[in-house]
Structure formats: C-alpha cells, structure tokens
C-alpha cells in the first residue's frame, strides 16, 4: 500500500477496445456488462476514442450537489468516492458532472472509486493508456507546466 492514487486515461493511446469496461464491471458487479462499468468509452470517427471516467475534481460539483451525503472526499489523496449504501439515486450528481463520469445503476449510481489502488482496469489495458496518477505529482506537474508557460511569455 502506497499513497492513494487515482485513475487517469490517456486519450491519445486509447484504441477503444473496451477491455477496461469489462474488467471494471466484473470487479464491481461480478458481471461482464460494460453498462455497469465505471468507465465508458465514446466512440469517435476522426477524433478517436474518448474515455469517460471520474477526474476527481478539486472543487467537485457532485460532492456539493449530493443531498444524501453519499459523495465523499478521501482524506489524503483527496479523491472523490460514492458511498453506494447511501446513494438515493436522485441523480443530482449526474446533473452537475461535466465529464459524464457518473451513470445510473440499479439501486445506486455508479462512479469510479479507484478500487483502493488495486485497479483491474489498469492491468487490463494492453497499451498502457490507463495509469494510476499520484495526486501530488500530478499537481506538481501542472504547476511546472504553468510556470513554463509564464516563463515563455
């Protein structure tokens, strides 16, 4: 067990094979049903494939919208997870998520919870398009990028 990380999908490497959606639904529901997956892939023509998954927003709209207290932030990593036992399926989270990362399920809405770091989707991706991102390093990278941009200007 290291520090908690969250799942990131590199769109440019995604071929849309859908293995991750099978792995996810099997891990979560015991079924090979992509509709039960917490990852969805939008198929495209020229624009390629666009995976949909929770981005663990720093300022998470879903967390603010949930009237049941079912969407929570993990201490430490700051990743956002959905407590399925508390979800009342009111869909307020779906109404405010810009990334279409939350879907309707049966008895609870569905959202990636990073599987406590043991993520089958990462293992299932043959091209290495899915990676676990260290939130600290991720933000450091973003800051560095911003600095570089400012420097160039």
């Amino acid at each position: 067990m290291g520090r908690e990380k969250y799942v990131f999908i590199n769109k440019t490497l995604c071929t849309g094979c859908g293995d991750c959606t099978l792995a996810c639904s099997f891990e979560k529901e015991g079924l090979f049903q992509p509709v039960k997956s917490r990852i969805h892939i939008v198929e495209g023509d020229l624009a390629g494939f666009t995976p949909q998954i929770c981005r663990n927003c720093e300022d998470a709209p879903c967390l603010d919208a949930c009237p049941a207290g079912a969407i929570l932030r993990r201490e430490g990593s700051g990743s956002i997870y959905l407590d399925e036992a508390k979800c009342v399926e009111c869909n307020m989270c779906i109404m405010v998520c810009p990334f279409n990362a939350i879907s309707r399920g049966d008895g609870t809405n569905l959202k990636c919870d990073t599987c406590d770091g043991e993520t089958p989707c990462v293992k299932s991706c043959k091209l290495g398009a899915i990676v676990l991102v260290d939130p600290d390093r991720d933000s450091k990278q973003k800051r560095r990028k911003m600095l570089k941009m400012l420097w160039q200007e």
């Binding site: 779906i94 405010v96 990334f99 279409n100």
Partner: peptide, 10 residues
C-alpha cells in the same frame, strides 16, 4: 435518458 445533462449544465 439523462446522460450528458451535466455537460449541458456546464
């Protein structure tokens, strides 16, 4: 079908 409602919201 409420898919993408959040995107439209934004």
């Amino acid at each position: 079908d409420i898919r993408y409602a959040g995107m439209v919201n934004w």
